[in-house]
Nucleic acid binder design. Structure first.
Length: 302
DNA sequence: AATTGGTACAACCGCCCAAAT
DNA sequence: CATTTGGGCGGTTGTACCAAT
């Protein structure tokens, strides 16, 4: 797209209702097309890039605005632990939310909270190796267990992926694809993640504080085959977005590792994790122990 | 009432990549 | 092939708003 700086005299700054109306009217009549030529045709003194951003982040009719739900926040944190600052990819898993909105939410809410809790928001790891839980127990002696769990999960992912059928998912017409060229299908990271961890965190009914590593002891079923749209090769499918160098297994392993560390520092004082329910078992301190009130399941007030 | 500091978020900027030429 | 162009991404900035002083 042509650099906006090339066109002097174009308006910058906040959009007026009139400009919004012009842009909306044009797109409604002509649909999405060439952003470079759109401003002139629509009678706007803006560069195409600015119009595109305004449409994507604000005017798109399928946008869901307002507070993030508890579920959405949990998803953001989980995905960020897994993917890092790949906002567009994270946004692809949050229907009707934009990458910009999620990025802002992260930077203004979650990041701050992590910092406050002594957790590095980039790595999701505690800033100190000697994090002590409110109960006084250190977490270091669990590191070996987590590492064991991680390795087991990796092996299981590779093994299971070889027998998985493929499926597809389609984004809404307005929703951005999770990869630019749409050459590969989106991995439903949340579901895959939950599935893997659900297997790992299956808990004993006799001792709710004791974590059992490995599959559900009764069934051994991880449900991976029913929820991950995998085409056969785990390395292909664990690629999210079109930048393969960033998305292949080694990095995801690292992210996985980071998430394990996060759990390592949190599960000790969190409520027992419900069997096969990772969302419910998401570290409670990241969800509840802050200065917000939870109005209901769908909204939180900061 | 005025000032100050913090917060939230819309918008911009610079860069990258893929497709087209 | 190299170059150009359009689209997209993540990081950063500007500013309106609000609460505390």
């Amino acid at each position: 797209m042509a650099d906006c700086r090339e066109k002097m005299g174009l308006k910058k700054g906040p959009w007026t209702p009139d400009e919004d109306q012009k842009l909306l009217a044009y797109i409604e009549e002509h649909g999405l097309g060439n952003w470079r030529t759109l401003p002139e045709k629509a009678g706007l003194q803006r560069c195409g890039k600015s119009c595109r951003l305004r449409w994507i982040n604000y005017l798109r009719p399928d946008l869901k605005r307002g507070k993030f739900s508890l579920q959405e926040e949990q998803t953001i944190i989980q995905l960020h632990a897994f993917l890092g600052n790949r906002w567009s990819t994270i946004a692809a898993h949050l229907p009707n939310r934009t990458d910009n909105e999620i990025k802002n939410y992260w930077n203004t809410h979650v990041k701050k909270r992590f910092t406050k809790m002594g957790i590095d928001p980039t790595t999701h790891k505690p800033k100190s190796n000697h994090v002590v839980s409110p109960t006084g127990r250190t977490t270091l002696n669990h590191m070996a267990q987590w590492e064991s769990a991680r390795l087991e999960a990796e092996a299981r992912l590779v093994k299971d992926s070889k027998n998985l059928p493929s499926s597809s998912s389609r984004p809404s017409p307005y929703q951005k694809s999770c990869n630019k060229g749409s050459k590969s299908q989106c991995l439903d990271v949340v579901k895959a993640w939950q599935s893997v961890v659900a297997g790992m965190f299956a808990t004993s009914t006799n001792n709710s504080n004791r974590i059992i590593f490995g599959p559900d002891q009764s069934s051994g079923n991880y449900e991976l085959d029913s929820i991950i749209p995998i085409g056969g090769n785990v390395e292909d499918e664990l690629m999210v977005g079109n930048d393969r160098s960033k998305c292949q297994v080694p990095e995801l392993n690292e992210r996985f590792d980071n998430y394990m560390s996060l759990h390592d520092t949190t599960h000790l004082w969190a409520a027992p994790i419900a069997e096969n329910d990772v969302v419910e078992g998401f570290p409670d301190f990241l969800v509840h122990d802050f200065d917000y009130q939870i109005d209901n399941e769908e909204s939180i007030t900061v």
